[in-house]
Nucleic acid binder design. Sequence first.
DNA 1: TCTAAAAAGTAATAATTGTCAACTTATTAA
DNA 2: TTAATAAGTTGACAATTATTACTTTTTAGA
Lengths: 233, 233
Amino acid sequence: MSIKDIFPIEKWDFKSQSILQGIPPEDLAMLTANQTEHLYQKGEVVFREGAYPSGIFFIRSGKVKKYKVNEVAKEHIIYVANTGELIGYASVLADDRYTDSAAALEKSVVSFIPKEDFLKTLQHSAYLNRQLLKTLSHEFAVLANSISLFSQKSVRERTALQLVVLREKYKTDEIGLVEINMSRDDLASLVGTARENVVRVLSEFRSKGYLNTKGRKIVITDVTSLINIANYH
Amino acid sequence: MSIKDIFPIEKWDFKSQSILQGIPPEDLAMLTANQTEHLYQKGEVVFREGAYPSGIFFIRSGKVKKYKVNEVAKEHIIYVANTGELIGYASVLADDRYTDSAAALEKSVVSFIPKEDFLKTLQHSAYLNRQLLKTLSHEFAVLANSISLFSQKSVRERTALQLVVLREKYKTDEIGLVEINMSRDDLASLVGTARENVVRVLSEFRSKGYLNTKGRKIVITDVTSLINIANYH
DNA sequence: TCTAAAAAGTAATAATTGTCAACTTATTAA
DNA sequence: TTAATAAGTTGACAATTATTACTTTTTAGA
């Protein structure tokens, strides 16, 4: 049984991978003509909120957090972008500054595509246009889900849900046990609460046998129970 | 002094008005060829989450709330759409069911444009494509702001902020005092808390001279103080 | 492999928010 | 106009969440 039968993962995942999948080769060539590749260390910033976008980013490997920082320097993670996803493009399209920051959650390889190439390709490629509209609309729905998550669920429920979502994101090709490798601080700012609360909830889940932890690593052993706690009908 | 000098209203407002503004006449003609108009009474539902979209909606007059309903039938308002805004189009573009519901907050006139006309116009109009991409990207940023609002601000701060935003939405053409005419239940589900909490915060603001209330109507007399409470730097 | 430094985990307590009950003020329809 | 109904308001209290202070474990570098 796949998790998709019991949990609507698509409500929480952007799948911007699809943007470049199936793109006509000549459009892709135009888009990637001047791309550059860069290795980001864990914690390294890809772009910062408020800066003017000079291009878009494609995650070749690794994971990147998208987050906002408040007045007292506390982070709030809006989304965890995975290998194959495109980030930073909405700000280019809105002709606005970056509205959030992005930083590598683990060692990641990211390609940079200059704004000019992106916009030029957009003028030529009906396919890219269509895919962007479709993807953005979906991402919009995902964010709307996140908002009601915050306004209507408890810390315990939100933690359970984010763990289920993270488990999907940390899955590797080989089927087997999934290790979620994320600091408690990052997990807390994803759930939207204090680190202590996340730790407490994790302890409870551990004691009930839903998961194991080893240092920062989390292995979920009973997804079904977590899905029930997240209360998704 | 305009409010724009002290408060970034664009961070909280979709401005999807711009989608149809400046559209070439022939594109507009194609889009609106088969539109129908309908008067919605206060509270009447325009579309419901989970339904398959058959078209998009243009608000000719009035205000429409976009909301989600949870398992215990509690509403959460994601956004208040105003006269001139387009709604329901993201679901058509994502080729998905409606991901939220829409209902009139006051007597409203709404035009319906069939999905086929919308998609056909989209294939012909580079302008519409560009505007939609730009608008969706901006709306995405607005939702991201709402998420951090929830995760990082108290009920009191959120209430202050939503009042400032609502004041802009309830402004009429004539300059003068603005009456926010919204039920406490709707205001509470916009702020994301219980009705009682919103009432309490309103009482405090009233006693401090930031606003007056008369029944459900709210008149803000000191926006600056509210902006300071919302803590927007 | 040893050892600081960083991160994870725990407990107690304070602050905020949610819920219930009672009551007052508006609104609506007979 | 008035009775009935709905909506708004207030207070008390319970539940949840944040904060502070601290111990234990893990990690990364010498």
